[in-house]
Design a protein around this nucleic acid. Sequence first.
RNA 1: GCCCCCAUCGUCCAGCCCGGCCUAGGACGCCGGUCUUUCAAGCCGGAAACGCGGGUUCGAAUCCCGCUGGGGGCACCA
Length: 487
Amino acid sequence: MTVRTRYAGSPTGYLHIGGAWAAFFNWLFARHHRGAFIIRVEDTDRSRSTEEFERAILEDLRWLGLEWDEGPEVGGPYGPYRQTERFDLYRRYARELLERGAAYECFCTPEELEAERRRAQERRAPYRYSGRCRELAPADRAAFVAEGRRPAIRVRMRDGGRVIVVNDLVRGAVEFSPEHLDDYIIVRSDGSPLYNFANVVDDHLMAITHSIRGAEHLSNTPKQLVMYEALGWTPPAFAHLPVILGADRKKLSKRFGDTAVRDFRRRGYLPDALLNFFALMGWYPQEDREIYALAELMERFRIEELGKASPTFDLAKLTWFNGVYMRQALETGPGRVVDVCLMVLGEHGVLPAPVSAEQRAYVEQVVRVLGDRLKVGEDILAYGDFFFTDVTYDPAAEQKYLRQPQVSGLLRSLADRLESDGALSREAAEAAVRGLAEEHGIHSREIIHPVRVALTGKTAGPGLFELMELLGRQRVVTRLRSAARAA
RNA sequence: GCCCCCAUCGUCCAGCCCGGCCUAGGACGCCGGUCUUUCAAGCCGGAAACGCGGGUUCGAAUCCCGCUGGGGGCACCA
């Protein structure tokens, strides 16, 4: 049997780390088994879903490299892949459930239900639906209809009274007692399906073999199992991934905005680094190693090896992974790093969108000079903004190195030494600086530090002489003189 | 409150299923050293954990029970 997994995202926001992580394991599992990875858009909540979010999610998934075999934009034999386009299917199965007596119409209004819930809360009792509509007499039903009430549809849960066992691939057998299961609504009174229903219908119709999803869905699973049975369907295998926690130890996806995949992209993170990081957050390849090529992950991934405990999202470790991948990319050729940096530069308006060939070449040189200091694309601004803009002096740096007695004169004499025509080579720059130091009988670092601050505004950064070469004679002299005046 | 899940360094993961090889291993981060014009990277070194209490056993991080702690879920959201 061909393995078929799916990522069923809801376009109510940007793709966040938690969603991407779940999507990744679905993808990885499918790839490992040479199966199919499907994307389904769960947009039944029309008040919160937007096309813009859908586009953004697909874009981010593609950026990560999680290509799908079936789904929106690519189609496939089990379409449509957007739930709002599948309403006739849901209606059909809702009718079937009704006919089989596995579901019933419920005429209670949201207000009435809310009141029930509140009363239960006051009694400090767990809320469960009263079941008022479970056995509605035809006359009562007619009265409700005459009143203009439109029914929602509920699934009968408590019949049978047996324990429901969820056989989870990562957690083993998890038991749920029937008395805790409530009749739940599968179709709203406006006729639109709810998650627990649409999800079941679609997973079955799309021949999904493995439902790999977040642990927040574990308690939905017994409800869904009842429906599979009522419809006479074989449920997929389930694997519930732990929930990723934020630094505050709370579910990451609930913290709005700060963990969108898109933000990491914009800040200059690499998709391979993100994926490698994802893999090792929750899964252990049985050896003391961190860096895995995607092909290797695909080869070795075993769903049974997934961890059960909730991991905490560790940005510092992600950034370390990214640094490793940036360095790797730099070795094979700076192209990818340049692209990432150009994106960051564009995002920040430092080097707006259409960049010329010369600009690109310049950025490439900056990247070479910055080298392994670039752990994340945005580091080009942290370490090399002065290559693109005027110097902004770090107050502490200025205080420490520029506001010193001899500095002004030193900077001026260096400027004088460098004042001439033609390109400035790093060798010439070094000779000038060291020569000046010797002439004054001081250690070269006593001049190197102030010069660095004068040229870059910072105490940290690339090698001074390379930096001077790239900056060019003109800018070096100008900056030295203006710093000398200020000092 | 009720249901469910989880529990090894600050963090991510090994080890647990099949008790002894664990003086608990690796990585991130942190601290120190080294290299050096600074920073970064690299290299060397260091601090740092089996939540608690009971069992079982010659022996428990590993098995059992309880507690505690953390998390998720209890919608006409997904």
